[in-house]
Design a protein around this nucleic acid. Sequence first.
DNA 1: AATGAATGAGGATTCATTCAT
DNA 2: TATGAATGAATCCTCATTCAT
Lengths: 211, 211, 211, 211
Amino acid sequence: MGRTTQRQDLKEERRREILEAALHVFAKRGFDKATVDEVAERAGISKGAIYLYYKNKDALFFSLFEQKMDEAREPITEAMRSATSLPDLVRRVVTAQLEFLQSNQEFFRIFSSEQARFDLDFQSDFRRLLRRRFNAYISELGKAIGRFVGPGEKTLSRDLALSLIGMMNTHTTDWIINHRSEPLTAKIDLIVSLFLHGVETFAAEDRALSA
Amino acid sequence: MGRTTQRQDLKEERRREILEAALHVFAKRGFDKATVDEVAERAGISKGAIYLYYKNKDALFFSLFEQKMDEAREPITEAMRSATSLPDLVRRVVTAQLEFLQSNQEFFRIFSSEQARFDLDFQSDFRRLLRRRFNAYISELGKAIGRFVGPGEKTLSRDLALSLIGMMNTHTTDWIINHRSEPLTAKIDLIVSLFLHGVETFAAEDRALSA
Amino acid sequence: MGRTTQRQDLKEERRREILEAALHVFAKRGFDKATVDEVAERAGISKGAIYLYYKNKDALFFSLFEQKMDEAREPITEAMRSATSLPDLVRRVVTAQLEFLQSNQEFFRIFSSEQARFDLDFQSDFRRLLRRRFNAYISELGKAIGRFVGPGEKTLSRDLALSLIGMMNTHTTDWIINHRSEPLTAKIDLIVSLFLHGVETFAAEDRALSA
Amino acid sequence: MGRTTQRQDLKEERRREILEAALHVFAKRGFDKATVDEVAERAGISKGAIYLYYKNKDALFFSLFEQKMDEAREPITEAMRSATSLPDLVRRVVTAQLEFLQSNQEFFRIFSSEQARFDLDFQSDFRRLLRRRFNAYISELGKAIGRFVGPGEKTLSRDLALSLIGMMNTHTTDWIINHRSEPLTAKIDLIVSLFLHGVETFAAEDRALSA
DNA sequence: AATGAATGAGGATTCATTCAT
DNA sequence: TATGAATGAATCCTCATTCAT
């Protein structure tokens, strides 16, 4: 391995460390309250060093966001690709996403607190990009659902995707803020069933049980 | 009406005006980027006057939150109380909540961006309170659902409540950040049906249609 | 005098004080080395207060520049207006300018150190404005000279103006950096004579003297 | 040539390269805004290497100044030495200086922006030295003029030297900041004539022309 | 000799909060 | 009550200089 490559690796490693530190700090404080100083301290380097790796606080934040969204997308995309039926699709996607969120609750905190402001300006076009990404994800899931629900039902498919994602998100929020001890993935069945058959499933079961 | 009461009323009126201004500014900028100056300007009073009515920026924010959550609760609680069946309950609650959010998207932005940090400290106990409120709302809806779904299914009912709320939230987010022109309430039917019968409803309809 | 007017006056007074402080600090340190802190300290106010009166350091500098150039222009313009002959014009202008510089050597330091960079960008268009002002002054003096030297000789007149100003500037520089005890205005005769009749005047006088 | 000498030469060569780079950067940005990084980049070496050749940024700046002043002095001194009459002296000096400035406008920018602060402290004694140099140049030219104007007229000669230099400087400034396309040396005749015979020369010519 | 990563002091700017009027 | 000028702590970012390699 050449010297240049080694150096490159070290640089990559350092970027990762900073991102890791940034993840915690941004999750704990939110973008605005987070200070570069705290990120540096957590990364065990000096404040100035941050700027050797990231142009500024925005860039650091954006980089973090991108990396995590990429990380999340892979298994979810894979889930969509390999699905053979609607139930199969839904189960795979919910599993993939909840598993990701379970091990990335800090990212979820960040994402969640930015989400409702994706249409507001944030240093020119940072948020625009996030919104695009968000919409792309919804569309992708919408299309996947559409394949089973009906070919021309674009709006409906999208709405269903939104709904499914919404359920997952609120359960994640609940799991995080109430420090649930059971794994987030324990909610997979519930969400899948509800999405597929509605509350009736549970009501039916219940009736059967109490009968 | 005594002089004191009149004064009291004036004070209340002023507090309302400030809250109104704060709502817009906090929604547009987020808590941290919002400045007391901008709130004052929007309220048409001086910066110093804000401090006559609210101890500090945090208190102002908190007060805003409380007021809006109260405002939201009323019609939703009413919906729960008067519901005669599960479908009826769901439709009433979804309608009430989406109607509220439709005319309070700014509050939703704020709420949404704080939500995922309700368990973290925020100037002593502000967030603790928000979390309590949030949980109270979920529980309330959970209980209402439980009345129809099954008496002892506490966890299930809560989970269903979470799910329903999640769907509404994501649709609201989508409606806000993508500046949808149709009213948010246009999603009522979709959400209600999905929650009650699951995706099958739509698939069935679709099949019928294409048959 | 109304309260508003009084406040306005106080504000004007404060602006003047800041400008006065800035003049000294910028002259001593140059634009870049000067700190807002030092200006504030010298003005006897807090750092933050500077920003109540000037948008930023650039604006403060620019304001200082403008004010001083306006101050300088008045008597010089008047000199040009009232001149009846070339010798009269030259004497009046040189007198006016040297008198101004004599009591504004700090401004001269600032001006002088910026002058040769008027074509370089400085926060977009600050320097552009300075250059325009500088050229306007040269043109004005050029036109005044042109009235006596020859009507169509635009370039020549401008060049003569440049030359005259150059002489004054170097004498001012010399007077400042070598801390001459005699007044700067002691050089009026020399400059006027040299400009009007060239070095011959002195050579002639000298010959006569030594004869 | 010994190994040591070779090494010495290499070192000298490297110092020259750095100085060359520094010249551009300092001229473009000014001393304070210029960064060692940019100098290094332009010199094609690493930032750290700069410090192998120059103690610090100040030393680099000083060295640059010295070198350029030496460079300028040579032809001007030669011009003074070989002059046979006042007109000859003036023409030679003006030609030499304008030629130098024409190919060293960047140095002029730097010099010009420091000039008016030669009497102020700058990292102990840097400016003291510059002032000495400046005065030495004036004196030298003053003496040369004195040889033709009159032996005992020290002050007068110095003042004439200052005047002549002043004219050249302003024309150079004008040429630089207004990006004149004609060469700076095109102003030689004007300056020489004006210095020798005063504005009358031009007025006379003009009158003759219009007669 | 040379590199360039790392440091940390320093500076511009913002803004919650106070307080004299 | 109301104002808005003033404060100064806090924060982002830059960059000269050092130093391990």
